[in-house]
């Protein structure tokens, strides 16, 4: 019997869903509201601060996990919702959704590694 690849996508979906459920709103508040409104000092959310955070091993892993898992979570959900909206595009939708998540994962990993340690 051919093994299904669904468990892999489901685990990524679940991990991203859990991470975004635990921290999503707080993350949006910090990066999208508090930082641009200068509620945080410039050195924290400015170039130097963010670069230092992304050069730290744990910081790098955190940023990578957020970007990649959020995308795998969203891609999986959108892919399965297309069917509910009456769009039965099959492999095209699957390739587009998971392809976006995979491409963003590779791009995020490459960029974060390029920043150095």
């Amino acid at each position: 019997m051919k093994r299904s690849n669904q468990p892999v996508f489901w685990v990524l979906f679940g991990a991203g869903g859990m991470l975004s459920a635990l921290l999503g709103a707080a993350l949006v508040f910090v990066t999208g509201i508090a930082a641009p409104l200068h509620w945080l000092p410039t050195r924290t959310m400015g170039y130097e601060g963010v670069l230092a955070f992304c050069r730290n091993g744990a910081g790098k892993a955190f940023v990578f996990a957020v970007i990649s898992l959020f995308l795998w979570h969203g891609a999986h959900r959108i892919y399965h919702s297309l069917h509910d909206l009456g769009l039965h595009t099959g492999m095209v939708a699957k390739a587009a959704c998971y392809g976006l998540a995979a491409a963003a994962t590779i791009l995020a990993a490459a960029t974060l590694l390029q920043l150095g340690f």
Binding site: V50, V63, I67, F70, L71, G74, L107, A108, T111, L115
Partner: peptide, 16 residues
């Protein structure tokens, strides 16, 4: 969730 992840990804790329 996807839109926010893409905003962050753009930030990381701009940072580099």
């Amino acid at each position: 969730v996807v839109a926010y992840a893409l905003i962050l990804l753009a930030g990381v790329i701009r940072l580099s």
